[in-house]
Every structure is written in C-alpha cells, then in structure tokens.
Design a protein around this nucleic acid. Structure first.
Lengths: 211, 211
DNA sequence: CCGGATACTACATGATAATGTAGCGGATAT
DNA sequence: ATATCCGCTACATTATCATGTAGTATCCGG
C-alpha cells in the first residue's frame, strides 16, 4: 500500500509540481494539496495521511503553528517542513513545535521522495545545511560548564527545592529535618558552588544542569 | 583530486573493511586507519585529511575527546562519528565536542561514502535514528512555555541582574536608580511571573528563556 | 577505647528581602 | 486644565536569609 502524503502550501505552482513529482513514485501517493492550514485538525483527521509536508509561510495559520496543532492530537505523525527558509529562527521554531524533518524547497525534487521514506523508517530527513545548523543549536548553553561540582544526594534534593522557590522553612518541613539543618546544607552548597546567595545558586544549578 | 579520509578505530577488521569500501569509490581516498587517538593532533597536522571518521570506544583517548582536541586547532575540519553507540548520551557528547556527523556502524557500508561527500558540501550526515534523537534534544527546555509574559525593558534588565546573583543594592548601583525603585520593579516582576521570591523568579526566568 | 570524620541541631546577629502604603513630577487624554 | 496613569522614590514592618560558632550523636578505623 502506497504511502499517503498530504501537502500544505499556499503556492499553487508548487502544489502542482509536488503532485507531479510524487505521482512518478509508485510507492508514494499524493492525497491533496491544501493552500492554508486553517482547518488542519479536521483535514488530518479525515484524510489520515501517513506523512505531511508543511510549508511555513502561509496566510492565516503558519506552518509552525499548524505543526503545533497537529502534535496535540497526533504526537507521532511524521511532519516534514518544506520551506524556503533556512534561518535558525524558523528551523528552531519548527523543531520545537514538533517537526520530524526539514527540507528546503530548492532541493525538494531531489530530496522529498527519499525524505518521505526516511521519515517513515524512523529518520529525521533534513537538507544538509539545515542539519548542520541543527547540530550547532545543541551545545550553545551546555558547552562551557565544567560538570564536576559534586554535591551529595541530600544537597541536591535541597537545591532542587530551592530552585522551586521553597523557603528554608518549607524545605525543612518537606524533608522532615530541622530548619537549621537546611541552613547547614545550604551553606555547604554555597561553598561548593562558589556563590553567596540563593539566586546565584539557583542560576548556577539550572545553567549547569545540576537539577 | 580525491577526498582524503582518515579513520580512527581500534578494530582491525573494521579498518580493513572501510579501506576496501572506500577504495571502491574513485573520488574517495583512504589515507590511513589509526587504532588509537593518542597522537591525534600530530596525525591530523601531518596527514592533513579532508574528512575524519572517528570511532568512540577506543582505548586511551576516546573518540569524543579526540574530537575536542582536533577542534582546538581545526575548527572546520569535518569529523564524522562512526560508532555502534546510538544512545542519547554519546550522541550528545559527540555533538557538543564538535562532531559534524554521526553514522552508526551497522549502516556504514551504505552510508559512509555519501556521508563523506555530504559533509564536505556543508551537510551534517546522520543515520536516520540518530537524527531523530538529535531533534528531540532541541526542545525539552523551550517547549512548554507560553512566551507571553511581557516584561518591560527595565524589568528584564533587573531580572537579568537578579539572575546573576546581584542584591537589590547592587542592582540599584548598577542601574543608577534608587534602592526602592528596584524593590518597586521586582514587585511588579513577581506579580507578572506569579511568584513570591527571588529564587522562584530566577528559576522561571531561566526556564522560560526570559533572559 | 579513642580521635576524628559525618550528619544533624541549636542559637545569635546583622543584612537583605517581601509587602504595603504613599508622595511626586511628567506625560496623556478628555 | 484637570484627572489619570506611569515611572520613580520613600518609609515602615515583618519575615527570611547569610554567616559564624558551637554542641550532640553516630559510625569508623587504629
């Protein structure tokens, strides 16, 4: 049974060329090309595609928002972005919304058929330059830390509560230890983290991934 | 001129099979297969490969560490990880270290030649399942927030200082405003963020990407 | 059995934070 | 022009925090 593909794009010419492209692949079936994502929920529920190709720049509901809506009721349905935008901002938003792949239109005819098959086998098809940018999105925050601030188990649990905004009193009640013991541990935490206030400790804890 | 490829892998059989594989590609040249990364700096400087294929599990210096070392003097040199590990931990570390691609060994014979060409054209070749995991690494923090906690410019600058562990006094001095004005703004920030302490505010600010 | 390391509790003190109320000047609008 | 809002300042009160010093109990190895 052929792979059923649903396309969202406001460009008439592109919809037609994608239909032509996909009709040449015997294992792929072009279901429909829809020019806007206003009714994306009902579209998808009725048509039940195997893969969705999604443009970003569309009037009304844009492609990223459409992905977000689909993800609310179809968490696993593969959605491949198909767009001219290759800036970090759009790539990042699309991925955060839940896109499963990202192909640039100028490589569409070359890459889309393979991308559709790839995404169904558990992959995440991306045009080369996009993939490169995605890799660069990974480390920016997590790169410069030194990792080895070893806090004891108890210290970490206290730090976690602190991060959640608990006062010393509340922490003491929660952990069933004395108010002063909380102070004692927090002092040790400050020493190990080289900070002198709760806000600094929380900041460091989150940024260094200690919680 | 053929693309010169340098391989690091402690497995003799794999080195040979990669040599065989690459020798069948006229545009690719297998330079050498090195069983450990102890001398990676001098190796790379002397051999000047166009692309490096890097195993992770090697005695002595592991592949991730080797990538880190190479990145110190060759920031752009393409390095493709070639490993059996497909766990998030290894993938994440490799990417943070500066890997340009990530191929699983069981798909090596299929994917390596294309991956080499791809990486040189600015791509980031990854085995499908790896790419999928990379996408999932992107959103975890930035996903669930609603983005619309609109703080004024001044409120944000105060919040930033608060995150850095500044006291009210220090913020007042830094921004050249009154101590009480700082209080005034922080109160407003608390209202908008629905919190009642500095630690909560800092936590929310970082997690919601307000700073 | 002792000295010491650990884990926890206790008390004290000065500083800082949290929250409320209120006054003032400038900008806006009606 | 006057009422109102906004940015900023001010003062007051109570709670909470940061830090230091010190005491108790338990466990461990010598």
């Amino acid at each position: 049974m052929a792979i059923k593909i649903l396309l969202y794009d406001d460009n008439e010419a592109l919809r037609q060329s994608m239909e032509t492209l996909l009709s040449e692949e015997p294992d792929l079936e072009f279901m429909a090309g829809i020019p806007n994502a206003e009714t994306v929920e009902t579209d998808v529920r009725q048509l039940e595609p195997d893969v969705i190709l999604m443009d970003i720049d569309m009037p009304g509901v844009n492609g990223v928002e459409a992905v977000r809506r689909i993800r609310k009721f179809a968490g696993e349905l593969p959605i491949i972005m198909l767009t001219v935008f290759d800036d970090n901002e759009n790539i990042f938003r699309a991925i955060c919304a839940g896109a499963s792949g990202y192909i640039l239109k100028r490589y569409a005819s070359l890459e889309v058929p393979a991308a559709v098959r790839n995404v169904l086998s558990g992959g995440a098809p991306m045009t080369g330059t996009v993939a490169r940018k995605v890799l660069l999105m990974i480390p920016p925050a997590h790169n410069p830390d030194q990792e080895k601030t070893d806090l004891s188990e108890k210290e970490i649990s206290i730090l976690q509560l602190l991060v959640q905004g608990f006062s010393y009193k509340m922490i003491a009640a929660q952990l069933k230890i004395s108010h002063d013991t909380v102070r004692f541990y927090i002092k040790k935490i400050y020493d190990k983290l080289h900070v002198h206030s709760a806000t600094e400790a929380v900041s460091k804890a989150i940024k260094d991934g200690l919680v």
